[in-house]
């Protein structure tokens, strides 16, 4: 990208902007403290907001010093990245959209630009324009940095939630003495399958289960990877001396499996969870007496 401030001339616009920022640091911070972005985030005291503003001005001056006003990765920004993220996050929590946060960031430019224009009043119009442009670019980059940081926070949050979901979404239910079941819901990718398999195998061991039912009613797509995971789980359960039954294969999925050419021949399947349970109870030799006093009579 073309730099406006090329050459090592002592009067490079970026350096003019740097000097201006250092000179006017206090005034800029004071003006920003009245802008919504600072005012609503730093609510303990006005001094707190001014302090935060000074830190940002300081960072901007350092970036200008390195003449990398267009570079969001400029080292000068690193000192305020975390602070910008906290400010952005606070505004999002207050219900602002990303676009609104972005325009609050944009609103930081005019007061600074007005100060710059006043300061460089005596300069040639050409010179003033160059410096004003450098400042505008620099503030635009600040906005980019803030938004990037906010986005990576959101990414980190969704990653954490995904991990949590992996853990909570695989409950093992004890249906009967010796029969456990896992109702699977959602996407069965490799990470999820791993968790399901571990949870189920542990339950089989802990509960001395002879049957494990995998109910896939809530799994929207069964492709070759999902099928492979199911078969691996079935094999592992078998190694523990128990039998695995897969239930809840919906008609559309059954047809698709056939076309796909998957051979689930070694897997015992039942239409619904109730059928699967019935099968397991039969095999266990349990004797169910409907609504009899004393409930079900089991072996």
């Amino acid at each position: 990208m073309p730099q406006h401030e090329t050459g090592g001339a002592p009067g490079a616009p970026a350096h003019e902007v740097r000097d201006f920022l250092r000179r006017r640091s206090e005034q800029i911070a004071q003006r920003w403290a009245d802008e919504p972005l600072f005012r609503t985030v730093f609510t303990v005291s006005r001094e707190e907001a001014v302090e935060a503003g000074r830190a940002v001005v300081d960072a901007l001056a350092r970036v200008a010093d390195s003449r990398r006003v267009e570079d969001p990765d400029a080292a000068g920004f690193s000192a305020v990245r975390e602070q910008l993220a906290r400010m952005g996050a606070a505004r999002s929590r207050a219900g602002l959209s990303a676009a609104q946060v972005s325009s609050e960031l944009a609103a930081l430019l005019p007061p600074v630009d007005r100060l710059l224009v006043a300061d460089l009043e005596r300069e040639r119009p050409e010179r003033l324009r160059e410096c004003s442009t450098a400042l505008t670019v620099l503030m635009g980059t600040l906005r980019l940095v803030a938004m990037q940081t906010a986005l990576s926070e959101i990414q980190a949050l969704t990653d954490r939630q995904r991990l949590q979901l992996l853990e909570v979404a695989t409950p093992v239910i004890k249906l009967w003495d010796g029969i456990v079941a896992v109702p699977l819901i959602g996407t069965l990718d490799s990470a999820r399958s791993q968790v399901v398999m571990e949870t189920l195998l542990n339950a089989v061991v802990d509960q001395h289960a002879r049957f494990a039912i995998l109910d896939i009613t809530g799994v929207p797509t069964v492709d070759s990877l999902v099928a492979q995971h199911l078969m691996q789980t079935v094999d592992a359960v078998r190694l523990l001396g128990a039998e695995c039954v897969v239930s809840g294969i919906r008609p559309a999925i059954a047809q698709t499996i056939v076309h796909l050419g998957l051979d689930l021949g070694t897997v015992k399947t039942r239409a619904g969870l109730a059928d699967a349970l019935g099968h397991c109870l039969d095999e266990l030799g349990a004797n169910i007496v409907a609504a009899a006093p004393g409930g079900a009579d089991r072996r």
């Binding site: 929207p220 797509t221 069964v222 492709d223 070759s224 990877l225 008609p251 559309a252 999925i253 047809q255 698709t256 076309h259 796909l260």
Partner: peptide
């Protein structure tokens, strides 16, 4: 249809992976 949707989604899943 539901069956055709499922077929196409499954094919897409294979090819995308």
């Amino acid at each position: 249809s539901l069956v055709d949707q499922t077929k196409l989604v499954t094919a897409a899943s294979e090819l995308a992976r």
